[in-house]
Design a binder for these strands. Structure first.
Lengths: 350, 350
DNA sequence: TTGTAAGCGTTATCAT
DNA sequence: ATGATAACGCTTACAA
């Protein structure tokens, strides 16, 4: 492949018989440069098809205007929406977004962090993997004084900002909704307890029961993975019980879908006999034959706010340890799978 | 924010009283460096928490090991899957992936291209926007001798490699399948004709009709957008006709879903009275009450192959104009929405 | 085997 | 208003 030849400010300076410094200043609209030279330089640069080499700029300035995003998988609806939010907020500020996947493995997470630090990114956005327990690898980021923002899945690290959903509230809303619909024996399909988000959804569930004076029954709580089969299995297990549940609040939409499928297998009426609520508001939930009620995590907004938090952090020049914790409100989309009473007109539209 | 201090090879060289060049060589495992020095340098580097500045390396070498990907929207299931494929193929080779969105606007596409070229990416992957007509902005990429690979949506540019689906075949397979299921009056909901992919699906549809000696009826072809309402509207229009269709092949899953919804409104039996086939195999299609038949575009594979094409291109050092056109085979997932005869066991599993 | 010095393309400091 | 020069952190001839 032929070496690609780049036009530099030196080429322009030679052609115009002026110094490279002048060209640089003219290009940067420095007030000390005469209008005439500026125009001349601009014109010549365009003619020669000059393009600024942002690499050299980055080396000089010590910042690349690149940020890294580390997520478990980029093709999950939730994560790709967050990424989109970040991209859209940051692009107008001249930043570029580098993405990396952890595949839910803390080892990959470490590698990706190192690789990103090597490329001199100006910041890192990250949603930790399921297997992340300690904060050792996170500490390296802080040591380098690279701004870090957690979103959705975080671990507690002093001095690190985060933007997360109020998962407690989400669990509380979902459960309260079921109670309002008349459900009394509400089961909970919880997620991986290693992740704070699932613990919080569970706590929200318990709090709602308590507030409505409904006794908490531990045998109604099963841990599931975010797989359809896992949700179906949970129903099988629950239906071994003497007292069957009359509602299921799943901490994830896939588990909820599996539950629905197994309930239908058993000819159980949804929502009349058993109501179901999921979590995440995955796109598929609203396209089901009887659409599923689910808690929306506002991922696009989460991305945008995470980006804003980063921008604030970068612009604060003095104190080097601002920590901002943003907690977003979840939104409950009530659909057929839990709607025993009236049709919620507000959310009936797609 | 405190200026972050970086450890350079000079810091190491001072501490060890050797030259920076030796440090550099030792770090790069240069055979001319003694084992002893290498070990010493490695140890000291680790102690001092040295991290290579890949920016300086990039400036020196003229390559960043970053590639850019431009897609209409990153949070569309198809695109995020392709991106995932590219990322997974390229990460082991030390590349990082920068993503950018065009929002289906050619103007944004141009801006993103320029921005990416400025950051000195080593290659660009791109799926053109709906509004892209000419190749002027593409030519700039070629002028800079930056490897370019189109995926899925391409425009014809001499010397540019591409990885696309055989959309003709996809349309042909879908239509032939419907014919085999006994359908005689097959309607087609086509997509934006500005995009080659939709024209090809349409051509595949026509070819299948022809092969089976089924007369082509232009009033059975309607242009739709990739919206649910658009598919529903199409059914309304089609059902004005004297001779109603007995099958619908939609060039997109959302239009197909809209069609299904409207057919159900009209109490029309699917698939017995009208069979429906979509295109893209969006995740939601298999979770529908009666899952939808759809043509899969193997996006993850498409990403991986696009990445491989790029790698080949980079490694070819001599001729600077290898053009590779890869065409992937679509895969038909037969599900309930078109399955009049037997259950296809092979694809029955989720 | 190791050291010296130039260079990648900018910008910033200090002169003029 | 403009020019000369150093510096960002690294690699790589060329010397030694």
């Amino acid at each position: 492949m032929k070496k690609r030849e780049k036009v530099t400010i030196y080429d322009i300076s030679k052609k115009l018989n002026i110094s490279a410094a002048t060209v640089s200043r003219a290009l940067n609209d420095n007030p000390k440069i005469s209008k005439k030279t500026k125009e001349l330089v601009a014109k010549t640069a365009a003619e020669m098809n000059y393009k600024q080499n942002r690499l050299a700029l980055a080396l000089k300035k010590g910042r690349t205007n690149n940020v890294g995003i580390i997520v478990p998988y980029i093709d999950r609806s939730f994560f790709s929406s967050v990424i989109r939010g970040i991209e859209e907020e940051l692009t107008p500020h001249g930043y570029h977004v580098i993405i990396a996947q952890s595949h839910e493995e803390v080892a990959n997470e470490m590698e990706q962090i190192n690789a990103l630090l090597n490329t001199q990114i100006d910041g890192i956005f990250m949603s930790v993997s399921k297997t992340t327990q300690s904060a050792d690898h996170i500490q390296k980021v802080l040591d380098e004084k690279v701004p870090l923002v957690f979103f959705d899945r975080k671990i507690e690290v002093k001095g690190v900002s985060s933007v997360v959903l109020d998962d407690f509230k989400g669990g509380f809303m979902a459960t309260s909704h079921l109670i309002r619909e008349g459900c009394k024996r509400i089961a909970h399909l919880s997620g991986d307890v290693n992740l704070e988000i699932y613990r919080n959804r569970y706590e929200g569930y318990k709090a709602a029961l308590k507030e409505h004076k409904i006794p908490f029954n531990p045998s109604y709580v099963l841990q599931t993975s975010s797989k359809i089969e896992s949700g179906a299995q949970a129903v099988e297990d629950l239906w071994q019980l003497e007292e069957k549940p009359d509602a299921i609040f799943a901490a994830g939409d896939y588990a909820a879908l599996g539950a629905i499928q197994e309930l239908k297998n058993r000819k159980i009426n949804i929502p009349q006999e058993v109501s179901v609520v999921g979590f995440s508001n995955e796109p598929f939930t609203k396209y089901l034959e009887s659409p599923m009620t689910s808690v929306d995590q506002t991922p696009h907004l989460m991305g945008k706010i995470a980006a804003q938090v980063f921008l604030e952090q970068v612009n604060e020049s003095q104190n080097y340890s601002i920590e901002k914790k943003v907690v977003l409100d979840p939104e409950l989309f009530v659909r057929d799978s839990s709607n025993r009473t009236t049709l919620n007109l507000q959310n009936a539209a797609i």
